[in-house]
Simulated assay, not measured.
Amino acid sequence: MTRPTTSSTPFPPPPGARAYALRTARGDFAVVDSPAAAGVEVRGVALLLPGFTGSKEDFHRLHGPLAARGYRTVTVDGRGQNESDGPADDESPYAREELAQDVLAQAAALGTPVHLVGHSLGGQIARAAVLLDHAPFLSFTLMSSGPAEISESQKLRVKLLHDALAVMTMPEVWEAIVAMGPPEEVGGPARGFGDPEQLRLRWLNHKPAQLLATGRQLCAEPDRVAELAAVPLPFHVLSGARDDTWPVPLLDEMAVRLRADRTVVPEAEHSPNLDRPLPTARGLADFWDRRRRRD
Rank of each mutant, 00 (worst) to 15 (best):
P4R: 11
T5H: 01
T6A: 07
F11V: 11
P13I: 03
P14N: 04
Y20N: 00
A25W: 06
A25P: 01
D28R: 12
V32Q: 02
S34E: 06
P35F: 06
A36C: 11
G51D: 07
S55T: 09
S55C: 11
G64W: 05
L66P: 02
T75F: 04
T75R: 01
V76F: 03
G78Y: 02
R79N: 10
A88R: 14
D90C: 11
S92N: 14
Q101H: 06
V103Y: 00
V103E: 00
V103W: 00
L104T: 07
A105K: 04
A109T: 14
S120R: 02
Q124N: 15
A135E: 15
P136T: 14
F137M: 07
L138C: 14
M143A: 15
S145M: 13
S151F: 00
L156I: 07
L156K: 08
H162D: 11
A164C: 09
E175P: 12
E175T: 14
V186Q: 08
D195F: 13
D195S: 14
E197A: 15
L199G: 05
K207Q: 14
P208N: 07
A209K: 01
Q210M: 11
Q210T: 09
L212W: 05
A213H: 02
E221A: 13
R224S: 08
A229W: 09
F235C: 10
H236P: 06
S239N: 11
D244R: 10
D244C: 08
T245K: 01
P247D: 06
V248R: 02
L251G: 06
E253C: 12
R257L: 12
L258G: 06
R262C: 13
V265I: 15
P266M: 12
S271G: 10
S271I: 00
L278D: 13
T280I: 09
A285E: 01
D286F: 06
F287M: 06
W288I: 12
D289I: 12
D295R: 00
